[in-house]
Design a protein around this nucleic acid. Structure first.
Lengths: 155, 155
DNA sequence: GTTGAAATCCCAGGTCC
DNA sequence: GGACCTGGGATTTCAAC
């Protein structure tokens, strides 16, 4: 893992469908060593996958909600059941374990406000272990950064 | 935009580097119409790009922070200056405009806790317009969903 | 207008230096 | 890390429905 590898990663973050040739040119390498580095990064799970970026609004998912959740307890069973139930909900795009007064932060994607209400009533409310729940809606994305901030370490 | 297109999108969300042939097989189409649909989706900006998914911890970015920010006012100038300054910060991976008592939600990526402190002191504190600032740290990702929830509309 | 088929071009992946 | 080689995928064109 050197600065060349980080360059490769940055280029693939900007365009995940780059051909190896293109990629090689951009990082000033010939195709073979470039491909070898790429395969290494994939094998050591530095690169865990590739995905298409979709315009959520255009797709029909107009509402992004962030939900902060506190659990009734942090016992093993409560936590496991909660996380298992959350794992089954398609609307939950991301779920983070948090420090501070809240335990989890969820990013939810639904069609519109009325569907969010339905999601909470039919699905979230049947997830076990929730003590409190605080929803905020995002009505715009101001910034999205595909590439990571610089790191100075050199290995 | 029909259910076939949604299938194509779902497959590309799961694997953004799928070849057109593979993709065509998975959605039960021959390569040519599949490619034409794909190009359409790209041209109409339904698919806005492709990216590599990187293991942040393995890369060296061990700390994910979510910051909720309230502005001192919502005047055009304050908002514009704030958003412009935020746009320049590499550590800010995502920035959402929020409803509710907070105005913005930021997702921040830094190496470790000490670098977060440095980030706040040297960079965030010089962003104009901030009235209050509330940081929570994520110390684990419980779930990440690459594919969208189902939508029933058929056009 | 939309699908299937064929031909050309170019890339990926392997091997050797 | 670089150069060569081969199989296979992408892309364009054309014919058919």
């Amino acid at each position: 893992m050197d600065s060349r590898d980080r360059l490769i990663i940055a280029e693939l973050q900007k365009d995940g469908r780059l051909t190896n040739q293109e990629l090689a040119e951009r990082v000033n390498l010939s195709p073979s060593p470039c491909l070898r580095r790429l395969k290494n990064l994939e094998e050591q799970k530095m690169i865990t996958g590739y995905t298409a970026i979709i315009d959520e609004k255009a797709y029909g998912l107009g509402v992004t909600a962030f939900v902060r959740i506190r659990l009734i307890s942090h016992s093993r069973e409560i936590v496991d059941e909660f996380e298992k139930a959350i794992g089954l909900l398609d609307e939950v795009m991301e779920c983070y374990l948090m420090t501070g007064s809240d335990d989890y932060l969820l990013k939810i994607l639904v069609e519109e406000l009325s569907s969010y209400e339905g999601f909470v009533r039919k699905k979230l409310h049947s997830v076990p272990g929730i003590a409190s729940l605080d929803t905020s809606f995002a009505y715009g994305m101001v910034k999205r950064n595909l590439t990571f901030p610089n790191i100075h370490k050199n290995r």
